[in-house]
Amino acid sequence: MEHRVLGVEGVEVSAIGLGCMGMSDLYGPADRDESIATIHAALDAGVTLLDTGDFYGMGHNELLIRDALRASDRPSISVKFGALRDPAGGWSGNDGRPAAVRNFLAYTLRRLGTDHVDIYRPARLDPAVPIEDTVGAIAELVQAGYVRHIGLSEVGAETIRRANQVHPISDLQIEYSLLSRGIEDDILPTCRELGIGVTAYGVLSRGLLSGHWSAQRELTGHDFRGFSPRFQGDNLRHNLALVDVLREIAEAKGATPAQIAIAWVANQGADIVPLVGARRRDRLGEALGALDVPLGEADLAAIEDAVPADAAAGARYAAAQLAQLDSER
């Protein structure tokens, strides 16, 4: 397994991380036994970064990870916090107050069964709380030994600079894929100027780029992709046509569309770690195979010709969700 380094503090992790959200929430039902087997398979393959959020399944995902980890497993665990849920599974904003930070972490440590979190980050910017206050509270937890490193998620360049003045930031977690390239304008250059890594989620655009999606697939009410503009009507048909072109490139390389899409993200810089949201061992194996797909300059050019920047039809989130993203301002 290839490794990469996040941030100036030198957080070394595997070149691909496993995003565990879909094992508990937001993508419809998941099989618990298969989820645990997938985590085991990832760790056995050399994956050393697991990503979760305390609000994924309202704590379920952290408990799942705790139950999956064996005595010999020592992965880095990245945790997002701050998103507020209600008993019906709805969303109620974000809380970045220092007292809330300490409270969230206390529950996370208990659910994970550990004495520290490797990377701790607010899931979204709380507009009512200065980022300096939120990061300052996490920095105190670093000093106390409860947190090793501080990350950010879905924030813009100005917020990144302000946060990094309080404490070194290890990485920014943000959506980045062939269909979502907005970070290339300001956010990615800012991270590189400051020596901050990027953990890229949505590298398959929530399954659109996987090569396994079809226009006939029905989404249940528990799958948030049903509200995503990219999965609706003419937008979906347009986006799947892009995948068909990508498939031709993949077949010429002896790869799958998913592997090409993941390899493209991995090839955008050694400071970028793709997070794959595999919920099954076969999908995990396919994703990890992306590391064995060599992409030269001609290959990268062909991929970007097939799926140029801004080629996607529809925004990456519904309008109400986009309005809450500091990274989109």
Rank of each mutant, 00 (worst) to 15 (best):
E2L: 14
G10N: 12
V11S: 07
E12I: 11
I16R: 05
C20L: 08
M23E: 09
Y27F: 15
R32A: 13
T38V: 08
D54Y: 01
N61F: 07
R66K: 14
S76M: 14
I77E: 02
I77K: 03
V79G: 10
K80A: 13
G82N: 04
G82R: 02
L84V: 15
G90P: 11
P98V: 06
V101A: 11
A106K: 13
R111A: 13
R111M: 11
R111L: 10
I119H: 06
Y120D: 04
Y120Q: 02
R121H: 14
P122R: 04
R124D: 09
D126C: 12
V129P: 10
V129I: 15
I138S: 03
I138F: 03
G145N: 03
V147D: 03
R148G: 13
I150C: 12
G151S: 08
G156C: 07
R162G: 07
Q165M: 14
P168C: 02
I169Y: 00
S170N: 00
S170A: 15
Q173A: 10
P189E: 09
E193Q: 13
A200T: 02
G207D: 06
G207I: 06
L209M: 06
S210Y: 00
G211Q: 01
H212S: 15
S214R: 13
S214E: 07
A215W: 02
G221I: 05
G233V: 06
N239S: 05
A241V: 03
E248F: 01
I249D: 04
E251D: 13
P257S: 05
A261N: 11
V265G: 08
L275R: 00
D282F: 12
L288P: 06
G289F: 01
G289L: 07
D292Q: 15
P294L: 05
P294A: 05
E304V: 02
E304D: 13
P308W: 00
Y317K: 02
Q321E: 15
Q324W: 04
L325H: 08
R329E: 09
R329V: 08
